[in-house]
């Protein structure tokens, strides 16, 4: 087991794609990372040597990615509303299954803790559950009044969380799809009357491995959202009662927005900020209001994933690079 020390984080590798990157995810083994780019393509990168294989099948950008538990399949969700299952370990991965799943953008796909179910959410405000291995639709229900930006399964396997543009987080009981409670993350929503603009949203949801804490990431203080004047914000809630326990503000990152948050372990949660201050990795704990460590990245980042066992962070960058950073000395 690698001894993590996030204060020693540093870039190990950087590999360039043909277009600006949008999203990235590690495979369960950490042998591969898949990224997506503005040319509608996906890239599978071999972590050992940076070898790249390009996947084509979407007609739009892909913001949503998840691997199945065994790591032999990847599911991607595109802005055209399409879910594609890929045989990701083959020399040239193929689309195993394509499902026209949503009307409009898919913004989140996640695999359930037991690997049996897949959830997809997006702009049509509907939550859809799928059998992960067959693509059969299990359930769907209109769930939010505005675009759904994010989704996460609770580690207990019994609950699903979804977050929307307005900063509303819903906790759903999976057995009967009833709404258990809502969490108020409205500070992540910055309507701007002067610009007639709605902006913000729960860009990312994460849950601590022990299931005790919920993290919601995005931006606040959107005084000029379409001029990129806003700041990053991470909210911390307790699972037991849904109470907001911390608002992790990030000083000195004007124009920042947390595109993704991931729980590194029960003590540390990580987020990546993009925006006019560039790409920054931020590390938070339960005791401090502000991050206990930040690490600058060479270019603006738009997504991030962590492979905790290997101590690696992948970041997808505007400058077309996928960067792999180490969380150890």
């Amino acid at each position: 087991m690698i001894e993590l020390d996030v204060t020693k984080s540093h870039v190990l590798h950087q590999w360039k794609a043909d277009s600006a990157l949008i999203a990235c995810r590690f495979s369960p083994t950490g042998d591969h990372c898949v990224s997506t780019s503005q040319d509608n393509r996906l890239q599978r990168w071999n972590i050992a040597d940076g070898q790249k294989v390009v996947l084509e099948g979407h007609e739009s950008w892909v913001h949503a990615l998840t691997f199945n538990k065994t790591g032999d399949q990847l599911v991607s969700g595109g802005c055209e509303g399409r879910l594609i299952w890929w045989s990701i370990l083959e020399a040239q991965p193929k689309a195993i299954r394509t499902v026209e799943a949503h009307a409009g953008w898919i913004r989140g796909v996640e695999i359930s803790p037991d690997g049996a179910m897949l959830v997809s959410v997006g702009n049509d405000q509907v939550i859809r559950l799928w059998k992960a291995d067959t693509g059969e639709k299990l359930h769907e229900w209109p769930a939010h009044e505005r675009h759904i930006y994010s989704a996460a399964f609770h580690p207990d396997g019994q609950h699903l969380l979804t977050g929307d543009l307005l900063g509303k987080i819903c906790v759903w009981k999976l057995s009967d799809r009833t709404l258990v409670r809502t969490l108020d993350a409205a500070t992540l929503y910055s309507p701007n009357k002067g610009q007639n603009a709605e902006f913000g949203g729960v860009r990312s949801l994460a849950i601590s491995p022990n299931g005790n804490e919920i993290y919601a990431a995005g931006t606040h203080k959107g005084s000029n959202p379409f001029g990129a004047v806003h700041e990053p914000l991470l909210l911390r809630f307790t699972w037991a009662d849904g109470a907001l326990t911390k608002s992790h503000v990030c000083d000195g990152i004007p124009g920042g927005l947390l595109y993704r948050t991931v729980a590194l372990n029960d003590a540390t949660v990580t987020a990546v900020s993009g925006g006019s201050s560039g790409g920054i990795l931020l590390f938070f704990n339960a005791t401090q209001e502000k991050e206990f460590h930040r690490a600058g990245l060479p270019s603006l980042a738009r997504d991030m994933d962590i492979h905790a066992a290997k101590g690696l962070v992948a970041t997808a960058h505007f400058d077309q690079h996928l960067r792999i950073s180490a969380l150890f000395a």
Binding site: G104, Q195, N196, F199, P225, F226, A228
Partner: peptide, 17 residues
């Protein structure tokens, strides 16, 4: 009809507007 000056988050905004 206002506002389309979307230096930031152009695509989300154009969906709405």
């Amino acid at each position: 009809h206002s506002n389309y000056d979307t230096h930031n988050d152009n695509f989300n905004f154009h969906i709405e507007q």
